[in-house]
Design a protein around this nucleic acid. Structure first.
Lengths: 206, 206
DNA sequence: GACACAGTGTGAATATGTTCACAAGCGAGA
DNA sequence: TCTCGCTTGTGAACATATTCACACTGTGTC
């Protein structure tokens, strides 16, 4: 049962919408309601939930508790995964402040920087370490995910260290693609790319 | 000549890679070289450039200057587009500090917040205004793109104001999808979604 | 009961995106 | 000039993602 990236994204979104919008005090929800919240089609919702093996009822829709449990079974998979962030600049700090309590499946437990003046402190509940400790901290805390918010020049070297330390997935905010060995998953969030895409299509729509 | 979202993203990436990696001192580049930098296949590069109507030579590859000019013709389209950011929190500030000089096609010219203590100053070269001035500032500066870094609760209201003011595209960092009228383009960058997706696939790859 | 209704589950059709594979082009060297 | 080796440009095949459309199902009503 392989689930596509797009479906996983939407499952994550569905669960959060249900949680944030207090649908938990309703016991059931219809595909067209979820679709309206997630801005997609009812057919899409039904297909996603079918892929996730979550069943609804023809008359009452989907049971909210079943939905949450079912999505968690896929996304959480038993235990919270731990993440490490490298590069305590403006963006890194913003992510650290934004993230706590955001996801029930991922937790940022350590932050790294090469600048000694930035380490040793606790930022938004997250301990900071020198880069050289990366391997040992990753191992000790069983960290599986890396977040890169360093400048472009440092990104690939940090990624290499992370992978050597056993990290299995990297979320990259640096404006350059990261080369990884097979089996390591990467996700490249590129601000400039997103903005330029938006600029192009906002012009064309007019 | 309609160009797909994915292709536009990669064109933006290609141009930046050529620029950042100082390929400008080489006069030509092959599709497989660009592909290696962008982490995609040579066929993908050739297809993208074909879509963009950029021609190469069978023996020397693509002319770097032609490439840059050609991609700019598409992404820049004559003039820089201006963007406004709403929500001067940690993330908003991080973006303001990160962005200047990043894109030759988009420029963030104004920032807004509802908190009076945050306005009136200039942050990383960007002037800050109270939310109530949004409509007039957007009109005066001919701003076409909005960036939302407010908390979830405020996001939709801000988006509505932006759209009413004539903004044509919205980059949304709030953890909730934004409803827009047809003709307005949105891009939803959701940290939690990206991390959970990464968590899921990094587990599965092992 | 049996009928109507409003929903789900899903095969099939469609749309979108990527890769293959190969003809054609160009330059270098003999 | 001819040929070889490398490249581009691109139709066609393939892969992935979304939507359609409809049989089926559970509930409420008479």
């Amino acid at each position: 049962m392989a689930i596509s990236k797009k479906t996983i994204e939407r499952l994550s979104l569905y669960r959060r919408l249900i949680h944030d919008l207090h649908y938990s005090n309703r016991s059931t929800i219809f595909s067209h309601e979820l679709a309206a919240m997630a801005h997609c089609t009812p057919a899409q919702v039904r297909r996603d939930l079918m892929t996730a093996d979550i069943k609804g009822s023809s008359s009452t829709g989907y049971d909210v508790a079943t939905l949450t449990t079912g999505i968690n079974a896929i996304l959480l998979h038993g235990h919270i995964q731990k993440a490490a962030l490298a590069g305590i600049g403006n963006l890194g700090r913003a992510i650290l402040s934004y993230f706590p309590q955001r996801s029930p499946t991922v937790e940022i437990t350590a932050a790294f920087d090469s600048d000694p003046s930035k380490i040793g402190r606790i930022i938004h509940g997250c301990r900071t370490y020198p880069i050289d400790d990366l391997a040992s901290v990753v191992k000790d805390h069983a960290i599986t995910i890396g977040i890169i918010t360093t400048p472009r020049e440092a990104a690939q070297a940090i990624a290499d260290k992370m992978i050597a330390a056993g990290i299995r997935g990297i979320l990259n905010f640096a404006p350059i693609p990261i080369r990884v060995s097979t089996g390591v998953e990467t996700e490249h969030l590129d601000l400039t790319m997103s903005l330029e895409k938006l600029a192009y299509f906002s012009r064309r729509n007019s």
